[in-house]
């Protein structure tokens, strides 16, 4: 084994035509395979998580694809982890996941879902987390939220309730209310 680790292959933007690879129906055609769905089949309380991705001018990014990774309803990960993929849909300019409410994993963190953003102009995918507004202790106790120095930015990682089981989570790539992005 080499003593110096190899260099990682560099990232590049997913570009404007990412849908051909990630969601062909948004490119305008169908393939017999379609890897990734915005709907989870796991057992648990059903929730919907939706929102826009906004650029530094506040304009919605309409050509992005968002991926979600979360624990299952019991907080199990490993081969129980849930992975979903949603393009921004043209009618709403929103991504939209129909999933189950994640359980807390037991890593000390409150329950959350991880979101990755792939888009034209995004040179390496951005990672963030959506926490749930019911967990009112989370900003103080969650090891990630509690580490955010600029306390007014904590709210950028907390979804807002938008009806029973419905959550809204906008992702601001830049600007005054820029979302906290993670280097994990």
């Amino acid at each position: 084994m080499p003593i110096d680790p190899l260099k990682e292959t560099p990232s590049q933007t997913a570009g404007p035509f990412v849908h051909i690879g990630f969601a062909p129906h948004r490119a305008g055609f169908a393939m017999p395979f379609d890897t990734g769905s915005p709907r989870a089949h796991a057992v648990g309380e059903r929730i919907v998580l939706t929102g826009q991705v906004l650029d530094g001018s506040g304009a919605p990014v309409t050509d992005a694809v968002v991926e979600l990774v979360q624990a299952d309803a019991a907080g199990a990960v490993g081969d129980k982890a849930i992975w979903l993929r949603s393009p921004i849909e043209p009618e709403t300019a929103c991504y939209r996941f129909e999933t189950v409410r994640p359980g807390a994993i037991g890593d000390g963190c409150a329950a959350y879902v991880t979101l990755w953003i792939f888009a034209r102009g995004v040179n390496i995918h951005l990672e963030t987390r959506a926490y749930f507004p019911e967990d009112t202790d989370a900003p103080a106790t969650d090891p990630v939220l509690s580490r955010i120095e600029q306390r007014h930015r904590v709210e950028t990682l907390i979804a807002t309730a938008d009806g029973p089981g419905q959550y809204r989570f906008d992702i601001r790539l830049q600007g005054e209310r820029e979302t906290v992005f993670l280097d994990v």
Partner: peptide, 11 residues
């Protein structure tokens, strides 16, 4: 316009 200005939070 699609690049965060704040440093990433390392975890």
């Amino acid at each position: 316009l699609r690049s965060p200005r704040a440093a990433l939070l390392s975890i």
